[in-house]
Amino acid sequence: MEITAAMVKELRNMTGSGVMDCKRALVESEGDYDKAVEVLREKGLASAEKKASRIAAEGIVWVSVKDDVTAIIVEVNSETDFVAQNDTFRTFVADVAEQILTSDVGTVEELAEQKWIKDASKTVQEELVSQIAVIGEKLSIRRFVKINAENGVVVPYLHGGGRIGVLVDAESAVVNAEVKEALKNVAMQVAALSPKYVSRDEISDEYIEHEKEILKAQASNENPDKPESIIEKMIIGRLNKELKEVCLLDQIYVKDGDLTVAKYLEQVSKAVGTDIKIKSFVRFETGEGIEKKEENFAEEVAKQMSK
């Protein structure tokens, strides 16, 4: 029987086991899901089966840097913030970060099938399943990004114990304490104000036109009696204001309201004798984009006590 990618994905969603483990189990069971689950359980690979459908929207973001030029940022999720602060969980996340940093893995799926950095007898996915069994919650390695700086440096920043993580990749002929401190300040800016772009040069014409249409509709609805020429001026003003909010270099620098980030970097560049150019940044916020389950703990306790 042909084992399709869709079948493997479904079994993986059911059990939390690795892709290749799921494929082998389906082959062995000739496509029978129930038997495949039994195969995985017998091998100790589906101990997290009952937790697979839970929502893991807490957790932490971790950053790791090597020699100032290679860096990774990774998000690993848990079900509760309590577990996110657990030393066992945080050690596992740190090991995952180290695994990514020292390998050429490019996707979460590839990472899952790699030999575990601390024990080559098992895969990363198998270690994840083991951690789920020990910790007692659904855990998930959600995403990661790896940056290799060219002609410069990568500077990390963690906020709130890992609630938000940032990497800033910059080009600079000089890499010293002053440059790193300036880039850390920029990383803090990214964490605080969450820009979408480094500069306006990154924004596509399609994005600009789309925003103009939205702003035009807003301005027209708010000012139905205004002539078209006035509406156009209003659109330009509002668009410029919006771009200042979404472009890092245009943002007002949080540590000095008289400067933009671009002007701040100009000052530092002049002081260190070389241009500092922000090439890119990555910002992860734990659980962003995941629909969190609303829990009523008082109600849950009451239910348990009434049983």
Rank of each mutant, 00 (worst) to 15 (best):
R41H: 09
M188D: 12
F281R: 00
S103L: 06
V134P: 09
R24W: 11
V179G: 00
D68M: 08
E150C: 14
A191H: 02
A173H: 10
N86V: 14
V93A: 03
S140L: 11
T91H: 15
E10A: 11
H159P: 05
V268P: 00
A6W: 11
N77G: 10
K244Y: 14
A52W: 00
E295C: 10
I203C: 03
I117K: 05
V155F: 01
G289T: 04
E300I: 09
E58Q: 12
K293E: 15
V129R: 11
E206C: 12
W116C: 02
Q189P: 02
T286P: 07
S121C: 00
K277L: 12
A217P: 05
S140A: 14
M188G: 06
I135A: 02
K196F: 11
Q125I: 14
G136Q: 04
G18W: 02
L249T: 10
V190N: 01
E206I: 11
S29N: 06
L45G: 05
K241D: 08
R163V: 12
L167N: 04
V175E: 03
D201Q: 13
E300P: 12
V272G: 02
L40K: 00
I276G: 00
E245F: 14
I164E: 01
V129Y: 05
A149S: 15
E232P: 00
N221L: 14
Y207Q: 11
E126S: 14
G273E: 04
I117R: 09
K292R: 07
K184P: 05
K270L: 05
F89A: 01
L167G: 01
D225L: 11
K43E: 10
M20F: 12
E30P: 06
V254K: 14
E98S: 12
E242W: 14
A71W: 04
T70E: 13
K277C: 05
V63C: 08
K241E: 15
A57I: 08
Q114T: 14
V39C: 06
M14Q: 15
S64P: 07
E300G: 12
E295R: 15
N240H: 07
F297G: 08
E242G: 11
L45Y: 01
A112H: 14
I214P: 00
V61S: 04
T88K: 12
R90C: 09
Q267Y: 08
I73S: 00
Y157R: 03
V282A: 05
W62Y: 11
K50A: 07
E113F: 07
D275I: 06
Q99S: 08
S199V: 04
D34Q: 08
V186K: 03
V179R: 01
E209F: 12
T70N: 13
